[in-house]
Structure formats: C-alpha cells, structure tokens
Design a protein around this nucleic acid. Structure first.
Length: 117
DNA sequence: ACCGTGACGAGAT
DNA sequence: CATCTCGCCACGG
C-alpha cells in the first residue's frame, strides 16, 4: 500500500488534476497545493505543476488560473508566449503586477470549499 | 540505469 | 524576517 490513501496511477492522477482545473470559475484562481490537497495528496503540489506543463495542447483549458501559493505566475514560461498567462488573466479582470496577482486572497478559489452562491 | 531538474509547499533553521 | 531542507516523482540526457 502506498503512502497515499488514494493510490493514483499516472493516468488517473493527471485526469483528476485536469478535471479540477476545469472547475475553477472564470476570474478566479487556485493553487498547485490546493489542487493536490483536494485530491488527497497534499505533498504532491509539484506533480500538479508537472501535469499542467503537459496540457499546453488542450483547448479551452484554464491552465492560467493556477498559480503558486503566493500568487506568482510561476508557470508563465510554459505558455506559447511568456505573457500569454498574464494576458489571459487580465482578460478575466485579474490584476497583476510584476508577475504577482494583486489581492490574490480575494479571488482565490479552493476546490475543497466549493463555495456556492 | 542513474541523475539532476522542476508550473510546489510546509516546516526547520 | 530570509533561507534552507526535504518530500514528492515524472522525465530527459
């Protein structure tokens, strides 16, 4: 038995990551750690980023809504151009300065909490 | 097959 | 405070 309560294989893990990222609402952002946590593998935030780095081909996929826990756009270099991540966020009304989301706490979306109106 | 690297993050120093 | 250490594990050289 693995250390993880949910023993994912590579395929299911990435499928779950992709599914959760698709749930992030327009104009909101989440973090690698929050996603890993909601999948029951809190210590594998790094693997979430690894999965996302392989999703560049997916259309209509909001990879830009995932940032690090401090609100920095650490994944920007994996997009087609170095400012595409920022541009997509700005288009959704997210304010950014020096690769950091302004008022990050206010637009953070935690997959576990799933706030419903 | 080994090894360094990396869209991370929490805890230790 | 800042910086370091370590867990995590897929991937390419």
């Amino acid at each position: 038995m693995s250390r993880n309560s949910l023993n994912f294989n590579k395929k299911t893990f990435s499928a779950h990551v992709i599914a959760v990222v698709r749930l992030i609402p327009y104009g909101k952002v989440s973090t690698y750690g929050a996603i890993a946590n909601c999948l029951g593998v809190k210590r594998s935030a790094r693997m979430v980023g690894h999965v996302l780095s392989k999703t560049t081909g997916l259309i209509d996929f909001p990879a830009h809504r995932v940032v690090n826990r401090a609100g920095y756009l650490t994944g920007k270099h994996h997009f087609s151009s170095s400012n595409e991540m920022e541009n997509r966020l700005i288009a959704e009304g997210v304010k950014i300065k020096n690769d950091k989301i302004i008022d990050f706490e206010a637009i953070f979306w935690d997959p576990l909490i799933q706030i419903e109106p």
